[in-house]
């Protein structure tokens, strides 16, 4: 169980946990930002290409979330799991996390992002699956983990697999 301890940073109240998540928001949610993600994916695929989308996901996963990525590079997936658990829970997602040997699976049976887009009458971007794979997959690059997403368009569920591998 996470123990949340509000603290002040740059004049804003944010939460803290025993593990001190780098970004940890509290307060109201503006879920319409999910519509922005969906629209942005469509824009990139219309005006640019899949390489541009991958680069955006890579920058976000590896630079914006530098702390999570650095922990993964050091072989620690706990910070990523804590992040997923906190934000899926904060946004009302339905999910469960299982660990079997060297594989952690995060089964998201109702994704808050995907369900918010569809409940607002918007069509999921046909490239939403690429976005999920690129975003989560980027966290695994050059780390001891392979991170993949099993998603079938246009469902609102998917499963994230975080597999630790060892050099043979």
């Amino acid at each position: 169980m996470l123990i949340m301890k509000p603290r002040i940073l740059n004049g804003m109240m944010i939460c803290g946990t025993e593990s001190e998540m780098r970004y940890c928001d509290i307060g109201e949610l503006h879920k319409d930002f999910h519509l922005g993600t969906n629209t942005t994916i469509d824009f990139i695929m219309d005006q640019y290409d899949s390489g541009f989308l991958l680069e955006l996901c890579r920058r976000t996963a590896q630079i914006v979330y530098k702390d999570i990525y650095q922990q993964l590079q050091q072989g620690n997936s706990a910070v990523l799991i804590e992040h997923l658990q906190y934000y899926l829970d904060r946004e009302g997602g339905v999910f469960d996390i299982k660990t079997v040997q060297d594989e952690i699976s995060v089964n998201v049976s109702k994704c808050p992002m995907l369900s918010h887009i569809t409940s607002n009458g918007e069509t999921l971007s046909p490239n939403i699956g690429d976005f999920l794979s690129d975003f989560y997959g980027s966290w695994g690059e050059n780390t001891p983990f392979i991170i993949s997403v099993d998603y079938t368009y246009p469902e609102e569920s998917y499963c994230i697999y975080i597999r630790r591998y060892y050099a043979s």
Binding site: Y23, K31, D32, L56
Partner: peptide, 18 residues
């Protein structure tokens, strides 16, 4: 899922790329 709380940080990266 990209948390809605963090969309603006991805947005910021997109602006840099553009």
């Amino acid at each position: 899922m990209l948390p809605s709380d963090h969309f603006v940080r991805m947005y910021n990266e997109l602006f840099k790329m553009l």
